[in-house]
Design a protein around this nucleic acid. Structure first.
Lengths: 336, 336
DNA sequence: CTGTTAGCGCATTCAC
DNA sequence: GTGAATGCGCTAACAG
């Protein structure tokens, strides 16, 4: 199959030792410019490519990073991958991708598989179903890791997150400023930091404005997904909120369509603000005000951080935690 | 760093030779069940993982496939990756990902890098800027490849596509059936088969209905992207079409907003049908009729095909070309 | 500046 | 059934 040429063949052709050819190709300082050029020229002419397996076997490092995320087909994550791939390419690295479908078991199995040294570093956004983090503790001792967006609080690693508390607070405040008194919080499970922070932002904003905090108005929905419209629908029809904060992008359309189905007018009967990483919500009729996360920048920042770790031997001088800012994008046209 | 244990350490622990341990782990027939169990048990207990580099160096195959696509952050491709990752995982394979940003140079550089045997197979959707396909000819001799969605006609490989001609024809016919006489075709460059087929579908539908085929009504726009709204805007304002066929998902929102800006009412003044892989167009006001490609299924089919190739030594019995069907999804609510 | 030697961890001959 | 020896292609130590 792969009719490839080896370093040794190059060496024979050039009347050099394999070692010298290797050094020339790796731009070693102890090789004359003349021979370097000779070697590089022939290598190019013969389409020589190093055998990564042999190279890595010797050299331990693999020039490959892994991304472990819940879902690929998702506005936020696909943008993040986009950024990560770009940064990796600039460094000449390869990118492996794994999706967990929100299952910790998957996460566990992937991290196990990655322990074998295939990987120089890992970028992870954890699945939200549970917070079993032991496997990460183990892994992070062996491989440089950076968590992004969905992180564990109880594990010490490098993290890139967004200001979820503040943006959730601001979104709630925005609804209140627009006259809402009964705001339905529609979010994911509050197991991970990200869920807790968003919920806390909502609660604190409600309290700070002396509104009544009704526990029933706090809807936390798992990622099984099928029931989400039903749950939202029954909550809206029973509780009759005048505002909804959808703290998860995937809930944005269900919230919207549920209100439509129930004959509620937006924004007269009810107002909706949604966390959203795409502009899709802007195309709803009427457009929704959104909390937009900087997906690309988060991926980029996380990747850059990882490569800093890979560079430094002892992780000196790399900032430990990094928080980017989401932005509350108001849709002026709707007047809320 | 990676404090890993080797096959030899396992062997020492068990008072066996490395060879036997290796055979046991690979479930060789010439090992007693008893020792197999002993080995497997200890391997599990010690969290042993084979070193893929050593293994592959010996064994040549790598249990890794690559995906090369124009963009990751795209409804169609992220769904395709989603499917591919799932299929690969079922086979115990790893997935490398590369994006070309529609640049053939990138494509070239990635394919070069993949020639080194890192990869067992490749899934590719080619960049549309040009149809330089020589590098693929070379690569496909060395590595099993499957093209999906964006393919080259002039290269003999396995392909998974959709019925672009038929769906484009049907979409055009739909607009005509709804009373459109002057339909603007708004598509990408017709360099690749996919572009040619979509354009041909439009042209043939126009001709078959005895409408006037105006070359000016055929807009082909490159992927540089910034100018697309401008080009569409000037075309619409000058040519005053009564229908638009947007043959690329990315053009769907620009078409819509351009009409809005120009004060054209949809569907009274102008009707829009767009190729689209997401449901986003359904949320426009009014919703657009769309040609929806089975993104997940295409990725899945391509991956399954690739693994068949990897299984067969001589590619026997694997269907060479596969065409899936897009569906024209009408939005009844708008009456067109 | 360049060559020689050795070994990374594994799978695969060939012995027994 | 199992062990001993060999080599995949490369790079790092050590010479010179």
């Amino acid at each position: 199959m792969t009719n490839r040429i080896s370093l040794k063949q190059l060496a024979d052709e050039l009347n050099l030792s394999p070692a010298s050819v290797s050094r020339a190709l790796n731009d070693s300082y102890e090789i004359s410019t003349a021979t370097k050029e000779r070697v590089l020229a022939l290598a190019k002419r013969m389409n020589y490519e190093v055998n990564p397996f042999a190279s890595n076997l010797r050299y331990v490092k693999s020039k490959t990073i892994a991304i472990i995320i819940p879902e690929i087909a998702n506005q936020f994550f696909s943008q993040a991958i986009n950024a990560i791939e770009e940064v990796a390419r600039e460094h000449g690295f390869h990118v492996l991708i794994y999706q967990t479908h929100e299952k910790s078991e998957m996460e566990l199995s992937f991290t196990q598989r990655l322990l074998n040294g295939r990987i120089a570093g890992v970028l992870i956004s954890v699945s939200s179903e549970s917070d079993i983090s032991e496997h990460f503790g183990e892994l992070s001792k062996k491989v440089p890791m950076v968590f992004f967006d969905r992180v564990y609080d109880n594990i010490e690693t490098f993290k890139v997150t967004t200001n979820d508390y503040e943006s959730s607070y601001a979104a709630t405040q925005h609804l209140i400023d627009c006259g809402c008194q009964k705001i339905l919080y529609c979010g994911g499970l509050a197991v991970l930091a990200i869920g807790k922070k968003r919920l806390a932002g909502y609660i604190d904003a409600i309290n700070a404005n002396d509104l009544i905090l009704n526990k029933e108005m706090i809807l936390t929905i798992g990622y099984d997904g099928f029931k989400k419209s039903d749950e939202i629908k029954s909550a809206v029809s029973v509780l009759r909120p005048d505002g909804i904060l959808s703290s998860i992008e995937e809930f944005s359309f269900p919230c919207y369509s549920v209100c439509n189905e129930l004959g509620l007018q937006i924004p007269d009967d009810i107002k909706i603000v949604s966390f959203s990483n795409s502009d899709s919500a802007a195309f709803l009729n009427p457009p929704l005000t959104t909390v937009t996360q900087p997906a690309f920048e988060i991926g980029q920042k996380a990747a850059v951080m990882l490569f800093k770790l890979l560079g430094n031997k002892r992780n000196i001088d790399v900032e430990y935690n990094c928080e980017l800012k989401s932005s509350l994008i108001k849709r002026a046209s709707t007047g809320y």
